[in-house]
Structures are given as structure tokens and as C-alpha cells.
């Protein structure tokens, strides 16, 4: 399910945003906490729509949250 070529900065950004919990981020992005955990661990690559929602939750651009190493 995961693709190691895509990494993300979600964990760091959560702590930069007043130590936002995974639950809070999940509510803002409209997904489950388990999905946030899976994305953070690189086990699941979100769809473009969810990636945008997560980036929007941090007030960042999508490329600032998700990085493609390929």
C-alpha cells in the first residue's frame, strides 16, 4: 500500500503546529486517525484530494508536506 518514494513531513508539522494531535489532524482533513498514522509511517500514500486537505490543515502547500524522492 505504501510507496517509499514519497515521504512526508506530517509528524514534524504537527509538532510545529502546537503539537497538533493525530486526532485533530484527522478531523481537519476529514479522515480517520488510523489513516493519518499510516500516512505518517509511509505505509499509505493518500489520494491527491486528501493530500491537499492535509496540507490545507497545516496552512502549507502540498509540496511542503509531501516530497517525492523518485
Amino acid at each position: 500500500m505504501g510507496n517509499n518514494e514519497i515521504t512526508n513531513q506530517i509528524r514534524r508539522l504537527r509538532f510545529d503546529n502546537n503539537e497538533m494531535s493525530q486526532q485533530d489532524l484527522a478531523q481537519k482533513a476529514g479522515c480517520t486517525r488510523q489513516t493519518i498514522i499510516a500516512i505518517e509511517q509511509g505505509k499509505y500514500n493518500p489520494s491527491l484530494a486528501l493530500a491537499f486537505k492535509i496540507a490545507r490543515a497545516f496552512g502549507k502547500k502540498i509540496e511542503e508536506v509531501f516530497l517525492c524522492n523518485g
Binding site: M1, Q23, A26, Q27, G30, C31, T32, R33, Q34, T35, A38, Y44, P46, S47, A49, L50
Partner: peptide
């Protein structure tokens, strides 16, 4: 308020 099912669950 958390979503119960999302795209990963559907996948």
C-alpha cells in the same frame, strides 16, 4: 466528529 470511514478503508 472524526470520520468513521475514509478513502483508505474503502481502498
Amino acid at each position: 466528529a472524526e470520520a468513521e470511514i475514509d478513502e483508505r478503508d474503502r481502498f
